[in-house]
Design a binder for these strands. Sequence first.
DNA 1: TTGTACGCGTTATCAC
DNA 2: GTGATAACGCGTACAA
Lengths: 347, 347
Amino acid sequence: MRPITLHDLAKHCQVSTATVSAVVNGADWVSEATRRRVQRAIEELGYHPNQLARGLKRQEGHAVGVVVSDLTNPFFTSIVRSLSHSLRDAGRTLSLCDSDHRHDLGEANLRMLLEGQIVGLVIIGDSVPEKALRAFVKRRANVPVIVIERDYQIQQVSCLLVDSEQGGYAATCHLAERGRRRIAMIAGPTTGAGSATYGRATRLEGYRRALKDLRLPFDEQLVVEGNFRYDSGCSAMHTLLELEDPPDAVFAANDMMAFGAMSVVRDAGLSVPDDVALIGFDNVPMADLTTPGLTTMAMPMVELGDAAARLLDAQIRLGEDHIPLRDTFSATLVARASTLGSEISVG
Amino acid sequence: MRPITLHDLAKHCQVSTATVSAVVNGADWVSEATRRRVQRAIEELGYHPNQLARGLKRQEGHAVGVVVSDLTNPFFTSIVRSLSHSLRDAGRTLSLCDSDHRHDLGEANLRMLLEGQIVGLVIIGDSVPEKALRAFVKRRANVPVIVIERDYQIQQVSCLLVDSEQGGYAATCHLAERGRRRIAMIAGPTTGAGSATYGRATRLEGYRRALKDLRLPFDEQLVVEGNFRYDSGCSAMHTLLELEDPPDAVFAANDMMAFGAMSVVRDAGLSVPDDVALIGFDNVPMADLTTPGLTTMAMPMVELGDAAARLLDAQIRLGEDHIPLRDTFSATLVARASTLGSEISVG
DNA sequence: TTGTACGCGTTATCAC
DNA sequence: GTGATAACGCGTACAA
């Protein structure tokens, strides 16, 4: 059964294709009588406009491209999800690409999206090499590009970032407010994969600034480097517990390492938070499920998703002369039992 | 800068558009000389075919529609991810829709995809009402539809299912093999949301069949109903521990409830697995991170993703006369410390 | 208020 | 081997 076309509809209603098109697109010059006649035919025959032909004519697609470095990362899915909803409301399609942490695949994805005549592009995380993105914006100056959690030095792209330094500062202060004085940090990697993602390394800087403001001494022994994975949190915590003067609080640069640390503390027969208070970073869904619940700095996932969606919509509307934006969001404290103990949690 | 078209290339190379098109699509009748000339021009000018025009002409889009009921569910993302990779290799685009557990949104998504001239459709979970899907396959008989983890009674659609009964059977047997005799079950809801998803309720049936085969008595008190959420696992476990003769093993119908149970057992001062062995269902990423690690029945996520991708590819190739398929996969045991204790885990 | 005719970028079918 | 040309389905000047 060949899909119904504008032409079929016109014949069926004894009107021209122009009239049918006008009805479909809500032009105001069609008489009420014919409008209703056409509307009814649309329902009856089950007409659906062909977006390919429409896009070809209008010189613009209806899809927005989204490139993600790893879809299994809950931080990313959350953003994609909120994008998906707002795009649906705008009648747009979401073309998803998972680059699997590989720059070559990210580049291939970009090429595909280019051919697909997308009308906007959202890049989440470190998934596309800067050079490829440069080439893209050169070829498609009118297509707005929004990057989340990665800082490209390209004029035409908008960047939505999270202020890790501020987050690290706030996390450290929270531990001090809970009466802790010997605060350790399990930091992220300072070089290599992951350090490209904006600010990962700067959580440490926030920690240092907080110590200074709190007039607490900075002790090199209390900073151990991890790689953002569970295992590295475990070994880092082992190292910390073996110190002559072990910490009474630990700030881990992400939740996964915090979970590793939590498990080690408990296996050592110590209590979280009585002996060691613990705070993470990210607020992954699981942070709410461990016992004790993990206090953490929440990434503003919903805000980022909404902001990206709104910005995208506005820039698509503006077209050629949209203004790239650069905005920074804050991580917010979600206090749970791993620092509060049996007190009531504050979300 | 207007995108380069076939026309531009033709003029630039002093050949016809037909020739350029032939080169782009790798036809075999172009002379080596002109082919190289055109190839070089393509590189130089940076030509990219317009997929909209191509699709319009060829009467088929290049996108595959994917509808998911909840992208934040790790089981779903894992499948989407593997689909994304195989589609990229096939040069196809992935149009993602998150229906947010709402049938009306799923229906809206379906309409959008219909207009987008998709060439294949994958539905994951309970995201689209049967009626809407029926209408879709009627309008687009040539577009293959593949459904994962939901059993539609529609001739033309392929269904990939997971055998929950067998999984429940295997889980129960595993507990018995570990020497447990008083095996409880925290079951899923028997009615309402979630029960539509294939087989959720039948895990209980597998449990009962296993007890029979093992010649263990079936005790009604040992079956408590939950709702697949963490909290319901907690309260179910409380109920079980308060029995005169509490169980020495618990099979939870999913991992989240198992985590809840685990937390309650430990809070009661008992040991997992020494006092109560614990097994879940799904193998969510977190199952590997708790202490003790959670033994669970792993959903065959990678297999499902690959199977869907392969099936889709084959059916798109066959076109109008593809044969719908119906296939069932098995959940496989992943034994960890929550049933093995300190023995070495077996993946 | 409505109809006619052309073009968007591509591919397929011919004729040369 | 290659080039002209007619569609594909839609939107839109422009004519009526």
